[in-house]
Design a binder for these strands. Sequence first.
DNA 1: CGAATTTGACCAGCGC
DNA 2: GCGCTGGTCAAATTCG
Length: 301
Amino acid sequence: MSDEDKINYSHPYDRDHHNIMGSEGFPFSLPADLNFDPFTYNHHQLQNPTGFDHNHHSHMSFTSFLHGAAEYNTLSAAFDFSCSSSEAVNNSSSSKNLLEDALGTSNSVSENPPATPNSSVSFSSPEAGVEEDSSSKNRRDLQLKACEDGDHAMKSTKLKVKKKGEKVKQREQRFAFMTKSEVDNLEDGYRWRKYGQKAVKNSPFPRIFCNTLQQSDYIHFVIYQKLLQMHKPQKCNVKKRIERSFSNPSTVITTYEGQHNHHSPATLRGSAPCCRRSIPRLSQKLPLPGHHFSSKHQSSA
DNA sequence: CGAATTTGACCAGCGC
DNA sequence: GCGCTGGTCAAATTCG
């Protein structure tokens, strides 16, 4: 029996029935008038790291939710709802290993257990309010099943020091999560550009590398021009890594690295265009057992 | 035709 | 130093 089979997912929000998160909707929604930047809150303020204002029922983006959840140790902690069978996820060593690998950490789950045992959550529509497209059906089926304990992400921000005390390149904060979805690329409101794809060792599925598209969005370009006049703009260096689990092909592991320094296009235009062509098309390719990538990549796999 | 994606080449880090 | 691996670049290709 797979991990997913064991899990009875609870649905924290039902768009049509307005439930526990308030009448204005599930905090994943991305309303057109949203002006909340998911990555601008203080990383060290954990009182309400999700940015979700329970008193005012304000919205937050999916990414802010994920980001906040990572810093708040668990997703369930972020939302304060429980999952009926979270232990099934937590007890899945393979899931933990996959996430650890995605985060670039190891042997830390057992050593640093999450603040709460609940680390799984599901939702029916992570982007309620965003336009319904061909992937929305799949996204409705999407089940966020395991989120890492925040220590992983926090650890990754620490300076790595070589044995001799020499500083090495600092790694951006990472946050990985697993989703059960037919769609590889989970829409999160940002525009992503695929810049690379690599075969993964011991896996038939490739790893996809994306970074954010900031200036290609016209509205963002206008803002960018304004920023040019006001400040020296910083390049958004957020990266997104997508890979499908070899042991469980229905599971997609998404890893975010870094922080956005700009608003989500979805928050400005009410849409979330990103990698719409590449990922689904790629996912159609993936099951082909004989599909090879470049000879070099293949040889290195 | 411009934008987005693909993919071979390249680079850096790490272990041996 | 060498090979392996992960990550990135950028020219070519594909798509809308």
